[in-house]
């Protein structure tokens, strides 16, 4: 059973659909008691950083998420904004992030040569795996994923970088630190590549 945190930040339906497609069950919830018994957590999210943190606070979820991620070390995967929330701060707002992975989130800023690039970075792009992780098993630099984002993660510790992607420059497209993982792209919208990644998360952690 995969617990998907519902904190009113965007499209959860497609995450549920893909998990079902690869043969597992999920529970979409914002109930603290239910999250307390979670064995594997997905933190999805689309939207504004501050709004997301405010919703997590208002739903009283920060404590239980800290308990699961830091103390119990339950595998947890942040998707898109859910990955950015793992950081300490974001240029998008004033709120502190969850602070589980050292680093900050910044808006794409291009130099003169890449000025014509549009923000958000929207569409299909490939990844360059940086370190070995079961999360990226059977994936390589030909694997492509669907991205929609204007901000990206900057890791303080290079060893937390799982893979990178090129858009104007090289940015961090997935991170991991022990049981905590985040992907900037949308595996739930990325065909067999996304299925492979979610299957890895479910089966190999």
């Amino acid at each position: 059973m995969i617990t998907i945190i519902d904190y009113k930040m965007g499209n959860i339906g497609s995450v549920v659909n893909m998990i079902k497609k690869i043969g597992y069950e999920s529970l979409v919830t914002s109930d603290v008691q239910k999250i307390l018994s979670a064995q594997k957590i997905i933190l999805p999210g689309v939207g504004h950083f501050d709004k997301a943190m405010r919703n997590l606070h208002e739903l009283n979820l920060i404590g239980v998420l800290n308990q699961k991620a830091i103390i119990e070390k339950v595998p947890i995967l942040g998707i898109c904004l859910g990955m950015q929330l793992l950081s300490e701060v974001s240029e998008e707002g004033n709120s502190n992030g969850l602070g589980w992975i050292k680093g900050e989130v910044r808006r794409f800023a291009f130099d003169e040569n890449s000025k014509k690039l549009k923000i958000p970075h929207m569409g299909w792009n490939t990844i360059n795996p940086i370190k070995d992780s079961p999360l990226l098993e059977n994936l390589n630099n030909n694997s492509r994923f669907y991205f929609v984002h204007s901000y990206h993660f900057i890791c303080q510790n290079p060893e937390d970088i799982l893979c990178t992607t090129e858009y104007g420059y090289t940015f961090v497209s997935a991170i991991s630190h022990n049981n905590i993982m985040g992907v900037q792209f949308h595996p739930e919208k990325s065909h067999k590549f996304g299925m492979t990644l979610l299957k890895n998360f479910i089966e190999k952690f």
């Binding site: 497609s14 659909n17 893909m18 079902k20 669907y146 990325s190 299925m195």
Partner: peptide, 28 residues
């Protein structure tokens, strides 16, 4: 939407914000 494992856009008959929310909740 439950069969669409790629980005999926829908148009037609949308006139209100609550319909948009509903569409996002069902996987659009």
């Amino acid at each position: 939407a439950s069969e669409a494992f790629m980005p999926f856009a829908y148009g037609g008959g949308i006139t209100r914000l609550d319909q948009i929310e509903h569409l996002f909740n069902i996987g659009v």
